Computed example of a mutant assay.
Amino acid sequence: MSEELEALARVAVDCGFKLHEALGPGLLESVYEACLFQSLAERGLFVERQKPIPIRFNGISLEEGFRADLLVEGQLLIELKSTEAFVPVHGKQVLTYLRLMDLSLGLLMNFGAPTFRDGVRRIANNYFRS
Rank of each mutant, 00 (worst) to 15 (best):
M1K: 13
E3N: 13
E3Q: 11
E4C: 07
E4Q: 13
L5N: 02
L5P: 05
L5S: 01
L5T: 01
E6T: 03
E6C: 03
A7N: 11
L8F: 01
A9L: 03
R10S: 08
R10A: 11
V11S: 09
V13C: 09
D14Q: 10
C15Y: 04
G16K: 02
K18N: 14
L19C: 10
L19T: 07
H20S: 04
E21S: 12
E21G: 05
A22V: 09
L23P: 01
L23Q: 02
G24I: 06
G24H: 05
P25T: 09
P25Q: 14
P25I: 09
P25W: 07
L27N: 03
L28F: 10
E29V: 01
E29N: 04
S30F: 01
S30E: 14
V31T: 10
V31D: 01
Y32C: 05
Y32V: 09
E33N: 11
E33Q: 15
A34C: 09
A34Q: 15
A34H: 14
C35S: 14
C35M: 13
C35K: 13
C35P: 07
L36S: 10
S39H: 15
A41Q: 15
A41S: 15
A41D: 10
A41R: 15
E42K: 14
G44F: 01
G44S: 05
L45D: 04
E48V: 08
Q50L: 11
Q50I: 10
K51A: 15
K51R: 15
P52I: 08
P52C: 08
P52V: 13
P54I: 09
P54E: 12
I55M: 07
R56Q: 12
R56W: 09
R56N: 10
F57K: 09
G59A: 11
I60C: 11
I60Q: 13
S61H: 14
S61A: 14
L62N: 05
E63R: 14
E63F: 09
G65L: 04
G65I: 02
F66W: 09
R67Q: 13
R67S: 08
A68E: 01
D69L: 10
D69M: 09
D69G: 10
L70W: 11
L70A: 06
L71P: 05
L71F: 06
V72F: 07
E73T: 05
G74L: 04
G74N: 08
G74C: 05
Q75L: 11
L77Q: 02
I78C: 04
I78L: 12
E79G: 05
L80Q: 03
K81G: 00
K81T: 01
T83K: 06
A85T: 10
F86W: 02
V87Y: 06
V87N: 06
H90R: 04
H90F: 08
K92N: 06
V94Y: 03
R99I: 11
L100R: 13
D102R: 12
L103D: 04
S104D: 15
S104A: 14
L105Q: 02
L105A: 01
G106T: 02
G106Q: 03
G106I: 01
G106V: 02
L107M: 00
L107E: 00
N110C: 00
F111R: 00
F111L: 00
G112H: 03
A113C: 09
A113E: 07
D118Y: 03
D118M: 07
G119F: 05
V120D: 00
V120R: 01
R122Q: 06
R122P: 01
I123Q: 08
A124H: 12
N126K: 12
F128A: 13
R129K: 12
